[in-house]
């Protein structure tokens, strides 16, 4: 499993990475690998404000649909439109071109409660 050491993680396998004052959100390499081929990603509207742990979208693999959860509370300021035409970007480059949403955090302190790369790797390794 590949880990982005700059990111932090939820146990539900979303990652969050700081880029300036904003946070980029997607799913981990472990998540994309266990889901298999991703064929559709439903993302929220830009401007929506969601709380930590709320569902922000759905990822559909060949096998099943899975909800996506906010790693931190925040306002959605961008969504990755490229996933509409090529959802498999999440399989190919989950931390890069397969990012899902960009948020402006409304409770930045929540960052400290997320798993760091080492803790997440240990957690995901148990599955």
């Amino acid at each position: 499993m590949k880990i982005d050491t700059n990111a932090r993680y939820r146990t539900s396998h979303e990652f969050a990475r700081k880029e300036g004052a904003e946070i980029v959100v997607g799913i981990s390499d472990h998540a994309q690998e266990s889901l298999g081929d991703i064929v559709f990603v439903e993302l929220p509207e830009v401007g929506k404000t969601l709380k930590q742990g709320e569902a922000f979208g759905v990822v559909e693999s060949v096998k099943a649909a899975s909800d996506l959860y906010m790693p931190l509370s925040g306002k959605v300021i961008a969504v990755n439109e490229a996933l509409q035409g090529d959802p498999a970007l999440v399989n190919r480059d989950c931390y890069g071109k397969g990012w899902m949403i960009r948020i402006a955090p409304t409770a930045p302190a929540e960052w400290d409660g997320l798993l760091d790369a080492a803790a997440y790797e240990k957690e995901a390794g148990k599955e």
Partner: peptide
């Protein structure tokens, strides 16, 4: 096997 390492779409 649901899929092989190749992946279902491929």
């Amino acid at each position: 096997p649901i899929s092989y390492p190749t992946g279902a779409v491929e």
